[in-house]
Every structure is written in C-alpha cells, then in structure tokens.
Design a protein around this nucleic acid. Sequence first.
DNA 1: ATGACTGCAAAGACTTTGCATCTTT
DNA 2: AAAGATGCAAAGTCTTTGCAGTCAT
Lengths: 133, 133
Amino acid sequence: MEPVTKQFKKRNAILACLKSTDSHPSADWIYAQLKNEYPDISLGTVYRNLTLFKQQGMIQSLGTVGGVERFDGNTDPHVHFICTGCDSVIDLPQMEVPQSLCSRAAEDTGGRVAACQLTFTGTCQSCCLRKTS
Amino acid sequence: MEPVTKQFKKRNAILACLKSTDSHPSADWIYAQLKNEYPDISLGTVYRNLTLFKQQGMIQSLGTVGGVERFDGNTDPHVHFICTGCDSVIDLPQMEVPQSLCSRAAEDTGGRVAACQLTFTGTCQSCCLRKTS
DNA sequence: ATGACTGCAAAGACTTTGCATCTTT
DNA sequence: AAAGATGCAAAGTCTTTGCAGTCAT
C-alpha cells in the first residue's frame, strides 16, 4: 500500500474516484469531479495516472464511446451495455461467456487469447422513454 | 443502384475498397490505397463517405483500435479478435452468442438491445512467433 | 541530492467542417 | 440554375508530452 502523503493524494483520488462510480467515466469527467476537492489538479495528471493504472491492470479501458475513451474501475470480466442515444454505459450482471468460445478463438487465430468482451448496444431505458414521450 | 458517373466514382471506390478487404482498415489506410488510382482524392472525402455509409448501415465501425477508428465492410454480425501487439483485427467464424443473453440484457437494462458484439483480445500468431523467435 | 509527482502549456494525432469548384440533371 | 460531391486547408477534440517546480527520502 502506498503511503498517503501529499505527493500521492491526487493519484489516490483519481483511482478512488474511478473505483467509486459505476458510470464508466472519461478522463475529463474524473477531472471535473476532482476539480472541486483539488482546484489545482490538471487534466494531464488525470491522463497520466489513468495510463499508469491501466498498465498496472488496476483499471480497464472500455475503448472509446462517442470519440472519448471510457474507463472502468471494475477489472472483473463483465458485460457492458452501451446506449447509442446518450453514450451511457451500464454494467450487466455477470453473464457466462462459454469457455468453449475462447478456446475456439485461440484455435482459429493460432494466437493467444487474453480477454473476451461481450458488449450490447442499444437504447437505454431513459432514452426509450424520452423518445416515446 | 447509383449510376457510376464521374461524380460517384470516388464514393464507389471507397466502398469497394472497404468491401474488398478483410483487414478492417482505418480511414487513412483506405485513403492510401485509393491514392494510387485517384491521386487527387482527399482524406476529407474518405471520412465523409465513411460517415455516410455508416449512417446508411452499409458498413460498420469496430470502434477505435490504438486510437484510430476501424471499419468493417461486413455488416453481418460476427466475432472479432484484436491483437494488442500489432492492432490487427481478425474475423472469427460466427459464434453463437446465446439468445438468452440478449434477452437478459434487455430485461436488465429495461431498454432495447440493437446489437451484440463479442470481441476477443490477445496476441495474434505472427506476434506470438515474433516474441519467441 | 535524487527520484517521483504534478501544473501548465505546447504539441500531436485523428476527425470534422467551411468554402470554392466542378459535375450531373 | 440547383443539388450534390469533392479538394483543400483550417478548425476542433481528445490525448500525450516536455519542462520547470515541488515533495519525499
């Protein structure tokens, strides 16, 4: 565990912010959140630390949604639903992706499979309601 | 069917280029390919037409790989393998994603599910060999 | 002192867009 | 003429990076 000194305060805050939300935020969103508590935080620091956490496997990237990279503090494999209306990302309860599929993927490519991501896209409940109302 | 006039030549060429490869190219790759046959083609035109094709559902986007959007002329649902070593994208034979998962996704979110994408990430064969050699 | 973290601003990479031009009807 | 497609370059977004300053050991 890293000591919570002034030097690591922001780093810890960035990780804590990401871990404490299920909104799968962008770097900018995290920056905006922390700006309140740390008025002098910079976007560069957020990006630098997110890159670091990613390399260390402490967080994961969802890839880009609407042109912006989105992060997930939950590194357990799980399923995402992405709303194409509002770009929100929703976690779905763990769904079993058959292990046989991973094996076949490895066979078919002749390579090594590190991960498997199942993603649904569609229209979330709010967006559905907004359209019909 | 659109007439093949001079006006549509490039548009058609862009679509044909994408449809004729399984490399899941970026806009820039398509631009480079067509630059030979159409020396005065511009990157803006490639982007504009790809956006158009996407809206019309004639092609699909894979999302960004290594910071660059990648396109797929094959709109049938299928599975992708993305190599994190060289950013290559490989099609995998259609794998059955249990329909029950889609239903559950719709139920769990209370929204509408339009599509489901299964993506494997890992190291492709060439990259595996390169590492060990 | 040395190494680590950060703010700031500049640079970079990718994509979109405005405008003038050219083509088709 | 009017509508559509394109080249070109500028603008726009998001992300990375260089450098100087600060903090911990």
